[in-house]
Simulated scan of single mutants.
Amino acid sequence: MCCFSGTQLVQSVSKTRIFGRQEKKLQHLIYSMSIVASDAVAMVLPVPVVPGGPDDAMKFADFSGYPKVFDDLELGFRPPVTVYRGSPAALPALPKPVLEVKQVGAYEASFVPTIADFSRLDARFRLPDDVWKKLPGYAAFGFAVFKLRAGAQDVHPMAFSFPTARPGHVFFPTLHIHDGEVHAKEHFDHTLYLQGENLNLNPGWQGSPGVAMNHVKCEQTHHFVLPEMHVHRRRIYGKHANGDIVLKPLV
């Protein structure tokens, strides 16, 4: 789920990219997007944390030094180069790099353990109480809150780990609330990346031909991306049912 405080302040959200990996009782998430906002806003990502934990149960990682991690993840899915006898191989065009974030630490991050704890945040960065009344399924969730500056920006990756209440699952927060309302369908512009084993992957997921270390600077990912594992990718674009995406373990 991706929702914003000050719903009238957000003009557009696009190019959302999310990486997820489950590790024993933890889940790791990396999140990036492009946003246009007329004033500073907070993005709220509800996640299934183990309830009753301490205020520092969620651990944030600074990816401002590796803003192109998603570009490198995407490189793992380039089509192979075909070599024709008697002529040079045509190299595939590389994707254009995203604009580098110049402001180091482009946001402030907070962990909100429960809905009730939103009262401890600055009032500007809270969501209306009636939003949560419409979403009873999130009553036991915790929340990662990122305070973003005004203007048009490609947000450098936001990353955090949390003790998950759903061991063996990988949770992608993809339910949209951009205008204060929960709509049955929403426009998606998402690319999801995954590392994991023994997960029930539907046909929409594509595996990378090689392992992550072939393209990703794994030593710069705070151990979020494992070098010797393959990566899976799923692209979601257009109108779809509005909800989170959860990968379950194989039975």
Rank of each mutant, 00 (worst) to 15 (best):
H156N: 02
D62N: 11
D117L: 13
F63G: 01
V83N: 04
F162C: 08
F118N: 04
V182W: 06
K147W: 04
L250P: 01
P167S: 10
F19E: 07
W132D: 06
T16E: 10
P79N: 13
R149M: 04
Q103M: 14
F224L: 15
F162A: 11
P173F: 04
Y84D: 03
K217F: 06
V104S: 02
P54H: 14
S208D: 05
T191I: 15
H230E: 07
G137C: 13
N200Q: 12
L175P: 06
G142C: 04
L91A: 12
F63H: 03
H187C: 08
P88A: 13
V112N: 02
L192I: 14
P128Y: 02
F4W: 08
D117Y: 04
A144E: 01
S14L: 06
D72L: 00
S14K: 15
P163F: 10
E74F: 07
I18W: 00
S161H: 05
T221V: 09
H215G: 04
L192M: 14
V170S: 10
F77N: 08
K68T: 03
K68M: 07
T221K: 09
A123H: 05
K217G: 02
G243D: 02
E186N: 06
L26F: 15
G52D: 02
E181D: 08
S34M: 02
V36M: 05
F111T: 00
P92G: 03
G196H: 09
N214G: 12
C3K: 07
V231Y: 10
R126S: 13
L199C: 09
F160S: 00
F77A: 10
L9R: 13
F172Q: 08
I18F: 06
S87G: 14
R85Y: 13
G168N: 08
R235V: 15
L29H: 00
H178W: 12
Q103W: 13
